[in-house]
Design a protein around this nucleic acid. Structure first.
Lengths: 201, 201
DNA sequence: ACCTGAACACCGTTCAAGT
DNA sequence: ACCTGAACACCGTTCAAGT
């Protein structure tokens, strides 16, 4: 992502992304207007067009920045969980939900607006999934996870934490009073151990 | 007395919901305009205000209709799966993802736009979750599912299928060429059996 | 009651022009 | 090069009026 120094401001491009983020956090993507972003950084409502072809491009830039932050959050959560592979996977799951909780504006742009047809996933987005799939494969090679299609297992793990994040289950009565971290940990443990009484086939 | 075809005595409300749905399916909620809905049913752009206080209320009506259809789809999927409790739960999961796939417009309105603060979940929405939680409790009482917090287990199951639906994983290369039903079934089996090699604790 | 056109305060975006 | 105001074609919504 190129840094674009503007004439009158230190870095208008970055300022626009930041302002967009703040406005989304306040009122949602739906209420985001280019005019308001401009006013927020003290610039004409047309200044944004110097750096972004249109509103969609600005959103795409926010989206990309979000996925980069997201991928780092996943790696941090994984590494903070120690060396045990199951703990590392669970650490990523917790980091996923906490990221959504703490960065609702980013999460909304990253996953909220359906990908316009033809828009390919950005690099950081693909990297985020790779991180998870690698952790699964590592767990398998260590013998901590059952054998099988690692990608499928990654899909299941990803879907679980994404569902919790998207439904904000950790922020509803469904969480049954559990703290977010404990709720996600409990759900993750269910996936790891299985729901069935004869879980180990 | 001649029938004035431009009048929609009584059925305009339903026609507006239906038209809204079709337009959302074509271009997404974001591009939905009251004016276009009106034109679509051959009515002035203000006619909608006879039946809905504003655009948000129309969307809420679509949302509610969606959840009603959704709850029925879950029950149908459950009952079609037979009497075995694990098969019934899996049947609901498959129905969940298939509903999202076959009714993207409904799904987008139901879950896409974040609940405006203060908007309580509609009856059908709560019923849908109740159906799932009951199926879990039934599986426990039959001894097919492990004991434990049924609500938490329902959250995990719900999140898994919601994540698949929201990320449209069954419609991406992540599905690894599996048919949607097979992909969801495989993911559901992973949750039921567990990812860990020592799944049965 | 049910529907309508005109009008208002917003949008995103284009354009020609200012510095 | 970078930024601006005026202008255009849209929105949702209000209002007074038509049938």
């Amino acid at each position: 992502m190129p840094v674009n120094k503007s004439y009158h401001h230190g870095n208008l491009r970055t300022a626009l992304i930041q302002a967009g983020l703040e406005l989304i956090a306040q009122k949602g993507v739906r209420a985001l207007t280019l005019r308001e972003i401009g006013a927020h950084v003290g610039v004409s409502r047309m200044a944004a067009y110097r750096h972004f072809a249109d509103k969609a491009k600005l959103l795409a830039a926010i989206r990309e920045a979000g996925f980069e932050k997201f991928a780092i959050a996943l790696e941090t959560g994984r590494d903070a969980a120690g060396a045990e592979s199951i703990a590392r996977i669970r650490g990523m799951g917790v980091a996923y939900v906490l990221f959504a909780r703490e960065n609702p504006a980013y999460f909304e742009v990253m996953f909220g607006s359906p990908q316009e047809s033809g828009a390919p996933p950005c690099e950081a987005e693909k990297r985020a999934f790779q991180i998870l799939e690698s952790a699964i494969a590592e767990g398998q090679s260590k013998g901590d996870l059952r054998q099988g299609n690692a990608r499928l297992m990654a899909c299941a793990a990803w879907s679980l934490v994404h569902g919790i994040s998207a439904l904000k289950l950790d922020q509803t009565p469904f969480a049954d009073g559990l703290a977010p971290v404990d709720f996600v940990t409990a759900c993750s443990n269910l996936l790891l151990s299985g729901l069935a009484s004869n879980a180990k086939k």
